[in-house]
């Protein structure tokens, strides 16, 4: 066998699984999703925007959509706000063994199923739960209060469940910030807020982008957390998709919803990458 033929054979061996995987499980299914979404229910062959016009005609649909997007942005922002000081502490303040242990402790809860984590919050927040009991016991509340099944509970759960995907890229990127840059800025007259603004945050931008993109995407597409913590009326858009697919068996409408969610998610990811000057590869690889 010639060298060239051997090289082509090697390429073919490695290329085939990748092409099969991406074509059969990613590209074609999403094309199918788009095609089904522009077909009226039951009307094979015909093309119609009916599924999309129904989305805009029914306030409950697009309200849920907008609400999901807004809450996802809020959850992403809160996650960033809570995670940043912790990531900074692990990367820049903690030293030696403490640093490694703290980082491991951040990862630990996220190896457990999301279901278990959400279940923990249910036990904490419900009327007969720990938090309510604690507040009654300390006298801050006269009687137990239901803290589950509201927007705040959803938000708490989403932020909690996304934390890892923010902390890891932030720690990675902050770890790569040379201490001497901070010292130099300080030596030249910088103060903590100005150094944070001009040195630390610009340096951490790739990690902030990577974390925010992933957290936003996961939050937007989350079904489990809103369903359990928000109860029957969580009004999360994935719930609408679930209802169309599994309960009403209206796959055409469900596809349209799914496609809209995909567009929103991709658009925000794209804008996020653009604003921070990142590529998808650089954002994904900081994880």
């Amino acid at each position: 066998m010639s060298v060239r033929a051997q090289r082509l054979l090697g390429l073919a061996v490695f290329l085939t699984p990748a092409l099969l995987w991406l074509l059969l499980l990613i590209v074609l299914p999403h094309v199918d999703l788009l095609l089904l979404s522009i077909r009226p229910k039951g009307g094979a062959g015909a093309v119609s925007p009916a599924n999309y016009t129904r989305f805009f005609a029914e306030p409950i649909y697009w309200n849920t959509f907008a609400r999901t997007a807004a809450y996802s942005i809020l959850a992403t922002f809160l996650t960033l706000l809570i995670a940043f000081p912790v990531a900074y502490y692990i990367a820049k303040v903690a030293r030696g063994r403490a640093k490694g242990i703290m980082f491991l402790l951040c990862l630990l809860p996220f190896w457990v199923s999301e279901l278990v984590r959400v279940y923990g919050w249910m036990i904490l927040l419900r009327e007969s739960g720990i938090l309510s009991g604690l507040l009654v016991w300390t006298g801050l509340l006269p009687r137990p209060v239901e803290m589950l099944y509201n927007d705040l509970a959803i938000l708490i759960g989403l932020v909690y469940t996304s934390m890892l995907f923010m902390v890891v890229p932030l720690v990675t990127v902050l770890d790569s910030l040379d201490d001497s840059l901070i010292e130099a800025a300080y030596d030249l007259g910088g103060t903590a807020p100005s150094i944070l603004r001009e040195i630390v945050i610009p340096h951490a931008m790739p990690g902030i982008a990577a974390g925010s993109i992933v957290v936003f995407m996961l939050t937007l597409g989350n079904y489990l957390t809103p369903a359990l913590l928000g109860g029957k009326e969580s009004l999360w858009f994935t719930e609408q998709i679930y209802n169309q697919f599994i309960i009403r068996f209206n796959w055409e409408q469900g596809s349209a919803f799914g496609f809209l969610l995909l567009i929103l998610s991709s658009a925000i990811v794209w804008v996020g990458l653009r604003l921070t000057g990142q590529t998808l590869a650089s954002a994904v690889q900081t994880r």
Partner: peptide, 8 residues
Amino acid sequence: PLVIPGVI
């Protein structure tokens, strides 16, 4: 696939 929501 990492930036496509799991539901989709």
